[in-house]
Each structure stands twice: as structure tokens, then as C-alpha cells.
């Protein structure tokens, strides 16, 4: 049977992480990082935003990309959930709609790694109902 993890195991993990964290901290200011914000309101969650957020967190780590994955509220694009807002340092934020795991993979490989925009961007000219 698999051993159940305890706080002692966390202590060991902490010791391992300390050195790598120090390296990471040196370049620490949010503007210099790729930022992925996943919309996590009722509409997003019901459409699978939780799995997409886990996917980004896991895959960016596996692919050694230093990025900040965080959650945000509903951006008003309920029809296109799950949505993410991607900010590459030095560029305007871009919102992607209908993000599946396959789409997320494409976004990581093309947009985040190589700066190539991928299909599925929600244009900024879109107005929500209250702005009309």
C-alpha cells in the first residue's frame, strides 16, 4: 500500500525546493513572467475550468516554463467558457475562449513558447451587455 504523505514529507520536500526557489526568486517580478489567468466563476467551473487550470499548472511545470497561473472571475464571456487570459511580458493580454486540453496544449507550444497566436482568441472589440 502506498504510504500516506504527512507534514514530515512536506518538510523534506521543502529542503529540496529551497535551492531551486532561490534561483527563481531572483527574477521575481510578475511583469517578467508569463501569466495565465483562468476564469473561475460558475460558468467557467461548470464548463471545466478546474481541469484546464490543473492542466496549465501541471504542463507548464513539466515543460519548465516559469509562469504564474492564477484564477480570475467571470469576464462576461460565459458562452465561450472555459476562457483564459494570457499575458506574455511586453505584450497586450489576449483572451482565449472554449479552451480544451488540446487547445491549452497548442497555446503552450505555439503562443507561450514561440509567440505565435492560436485560433480561438476573443477579440477585444466585443462588448458585453452592460456596455451597450
Amino acid at each position: 500500500m502506498e504510504k500516506v504523505k504527512t507534514l514530515d514529507d512536506l518538510k523534506k520536500l521543502k529542503e529540496q525546493l529551497k535551492s531551486t526557489i532561490e534561483l527563481r526568486e531572483k527574477s521575481n517580478n510578475p511583469e517578467s513572467h508569463v501569466q495565465v489567468k483562468v476564469a473561475m466563476a460558475t460558468c467557467g467551473i461548470a464548463s471545466g475550468a478546474r481541469e484546464i487550470m490543473s492542466f496549465f499548472m501541471d504542463e507548464l511545470r513539466k515543460r519548465n516554463i516559469d509562469a504564474i497561473v492564477s484564477q480570475t472571475g467571470c469576464m462576461g464571456y460565459c458562452y465561450a467558457e472555459p476562457t483564459i487570459e494570457l499575458t506574455i511580458p511586453g505584450h497586450e493580454p489576449v483572451v482565449y475562449g472554449n479552451v480544451t486540453k488540446a487547445k491549452a496544449d497548442e497555446i503552450i507550444e505555439k503562443h507561450i513558447k514561440n509567440g505565435i497566436l492560436v485560433d480561438g482568441i476573443i477579440p477585444v472589440t466585443y462588448q458585453n451587455i452592460n456596455k451597450k
Partner: peptide, 22 residues
Amino acid sequence: VLEEVPITSPEVRVFIHQMLKQ
């Protein structure tokens, strides 16, 4: 336990996930 290591570290998230699941 983590002290200066941020709770947002990807490795810590994986650990917490496993600990809860187990």
C-alpha cells in the same frame, strides 16, 4: 512547515493534492 518556500510552488501543489487524496 514551508517557511520561505511559497505555497504556490508547483511542486507543493502536487504534494498537497497527493496528501489530500491519500
